[in-house]
Design a protein around this nucleic acid. Structure first.
Length: 661
DNA sequence: TCCTTAACTGTTTTT
DNA sequence: CAGTTAAGGA
């Protein structure tokens, strides 16, 4: 579809376009109402693709995730009598996790609670972490305005965490502006200090965490399921898995969709989808030459054309293969053989799922083609397919009588992250911060609390996005009941390259009094943290600012004077201290080279590189825009409008301000 | 049409 | 690094 329009897929990838369409749908903008924003090429492309995409969904009798809500909202909106009937039927409506609702859900809720306004919602604005998916924080922030007669109950008592953990969480989230203030308290004990550990690299980080778990379990103090390790991105799980395996710690990794998203599983399920819905052209295209049966691009092209001309689905066109012009006898026979396969599977559609999938595997030749292969990966795939059969059998046990194909497929689409999280087995848990919401563990580790990872570098210049990252950290921290460890690695391998990292700015927003700063084992010079440990005479936010000429100017002090310390400077000190202490002695050359690399942790930017109107970021104040510049050389200053704290005047040579990524 | 190899490229989170 | 695409040969 995108190809047909000769759209430049480099700038407008299917992913990006779908994302844009999804965002539009979340805002209840239907294809016919979508207006391209002037000046935005992307939106012009979307305006072209969106209606075609929607038409194609309709032709396939399909809906996407967003349609699930959009269609309902539209139905309720356009048909007063249906709305009234459903409002009548559902007298009392309860919504959990209200902070994660989007515009469409909001409209649906309103529609269902108009005549019978019995609506109860629960949620915590500080735990809204799905803004990027269309969740609208305003839904909860402005609930009182939307429903003036509302009765609000604040649940501020925390029964889960220790006082220290709670204070760390509370102070961090206090840096957010778009929230509802609340006073969290608990009668639990102080508990242990929150640990902040700097490791040399991610392998040391992973190994130490694994070792801590192993040791506690061996000592009988804890059991594996007491532990959870959270990370911002899935890619970070690799070294953790390796270390846990090496330490012999049983673990489970929660990765939603993982199973059903595998190529081989999707291949097999595509046959099922086509049986379930013969108009599913995507399933047709996926299956017709999987495994390879000599049906290529050209053949599919001709089929598509025939289908288009007759207004039929592709499978229908394939049934007429003998009449299609340009098809050789051989080609027509191959296509007919494929149709035959589909029909054979369709014949057992009313049986058990295990039978349906078993038939797919046999009739399609999929299993045989994998079994013949001597590629190691294919053997793996074979194992996954056997697992799919097991999954199907389990499903059959719960849904006896057969004929439940559609339900099974639905489940495969809708499984979420935590659905396959097993609470009964005694294993440590690895998961993303997003997946962690709603859970709790006695001991929590959060790894890679680094600039660019937690807040993730892809959060845009919009302050709301930075705040969402902060909420994500908040969610992770508040999962911990008794112990919490935050950590970062001084260097981290990323995409095959070793990089020096900068500790997350969020770490500077946490109360040092509740925390314990550590290096990893004795390989770390604690002196590196001295500037942090030293309690400031004044507390809190202003500690790195001091007054000059009436203006608040921010600067990193020279070594010697004590209070001001930016996070970037801390990381430089850390690395330097490492070198001095010979902490790197045991490392292979490559690692040593990197640590002693002349490249500073914070790329120094010449003051002249800053231009008016430029978007910049600051480790504490977040993103901002340069309003004005003054002075020159070392004295060059910028007035920056920060989204979080308003306008600040900053000396560029000394500050940690950088051009936005 | 298929298969192998080399080059390339892109990287968040997921109902 | 890993997953995907482009190119070229069978």
């Amino acid at each position: 579809m995108i190809e047909a329009r000769e759209i430049n897929t480099l700038n407008y990838s299917p992913d990006r376009l779908h994302e844009a369409i999804s965002a539009a749908k979340n805002k209840l903008i239907t294809a016919d109402k979508y207006e391209p924003r002037s000046g935005s090429m992307l939106s012009r492309v979307v305006a072209e693709v969106y209606p075609a995409y929607q038409a194609r969904l309709l032709a396939s009798s399909a809906v996407d995730f967003d349609d699930l809500l959009l269609h309902i909202a539209q139905l309720l909106y356009e048909h007063a009598e249906i709305r009234a009937e459903l409002d009548e039927r559902y007298r009392y409506v309860l919504v959990d996790e209200y902070q994660d609702t989007n515009r469409a859900q909001y409209v649906i809720l309103r529609a269902l609670s108009t005549d019978h306004s019995n609506l109860a919602v629960t949620g915590d604005p500080d735990q809204s972490i799905y803004g990027w998916r269309g969740a609208d924080l305003n839904n909860i922030l402005e609930f009182e305005r939307d429903y003036p007669s509302v009765n609000i109950v604040r649940l501020e008592r925390n029964y889960r965490s220790t006082k220290r953990i709670l204070r760390v969480a509370d102070e961090l989230i206090g840096h957010n502006l778009r929230r509802k203030k609340k006073e969290l308290w608990t009668e639990n004990g102080d508990g242990a200090p929150v640990r902040l550990i700097a490791y040399l690299d991610q392998d040391k980080e992973a190994a130490d965490i694994a070792e801590q778990i192993r040791e506690s379990v061996a000592a009988g103090r804890r059991t594996p399921s007491d532990f959870a390790v959270f990370y911002r991105v899935n890619a970070l799980s690799r070294s953790l898995e390796k270390a846990l395996r090496a330490a012999g710690v049983p673990y489970q990794m929660v990765r939603g969709q993982e199973f059903y998203a595998r190529k081989e599983i999707k291949d097999v399920l595509a046959y099922c989808q086509l049986i379930n819905n013969p108009r599913d052209d995507m399933a047709f295209e996926r299956t017709i030459n999987t495994p390879a049966r000599g049906i290529g691009r050209k053949t599919i092209e001709r089929l598509t054309e025939h289908a288009y001309r007759h207004g039929t689905p592709l499978l229908e066109a394939a049934r007429a293969s003998w009449e299609i012009e340009g098809f050789s006898k051989g080609t027509a026979a191959k296509v007919a053989a494929y149709v035959e396969i589909i029909d054979r599977i369709a014949a057992v559609v009313h049986g058990d799922l295990e039978e349906v999938i078993g038939t797919v595997l046999e009739a399609s030749g999929y299993r045989a083609s994998l079994a013949e292969s001597d590629d190691e990966q294919d053997q793996n795939r074979l194992a996954n397919i056997e697992e799919l059969l097991t999954d199907a059998r389990q499903f059959d046990e719960q849904n006896s009588g057969g004929g439940h194909l559609e339900e099974y497929l639905e489940r495969s689409w809708l499984v979420n992250e935590t659905d396959n999280w097993d609470t009964d087995t005694d294993k440590a848990t690895l998961m993303t911060l997003h997946a962690a919401k709603g859970l709790e563990f006695p001991v929590v580790f959060i790894v890679a609390v680094e600039d660019g990872v937690l807040p993730h570098e892809r959060v845009g210049q919009h302050p709301d996005e930075l705040e969402e990252e902060r909420r994500l950290a908040f969610v992770g921290i508040t999962r911990a009941k008794e112990e919490l460890q935050l950590s970062y690695a001084v260097t981290r391998d990323f995409r095959g390259v070793r990089r020096r990292t900068i500790p997350s700015s969020f770490l500077m927003e946490m109360p040092r009094g509740e925390m314990e700063m550590l290096g990893s084992g004795d390989s770390f010079d604690e002196a590196a943290f001295e500037p942090w440990d030293e309690p400031d005479d004044d507390e809190g936010d202003d500690s790195w600012d001091f007054q000059i000429d009436d203006e608040t100017v921010e600067s990193v002090s020279d070594s010697g004077s004590k209070p001001a310390m930016s996070i970037a400077a801390a990381s430089i000190t850390t690395a330097a201290a490492l070198e001095r202490s010979g902490a790197t002695a045991g490392l292979p050359n490559s690692a040593l080279n990197v640590v002693s690399e002349p490249e500073p942790a914070l790329p120094r930017v010449s003051p002249d590189a800053f231009k008016q109107g430029m978007t910049v970021t600051h480790p504490e104040y977040g993103p901002g825009k340069i309003v004005a510049l003054s002075g020159s050389g070392k004295g060059r200053r910028a007035t920056i409008q920060f989204a979080t704290v308003g306008e600040k005047k900053i000396i560029l040579t000394h500050s940690a301000v950088r051009p936005a990524r």
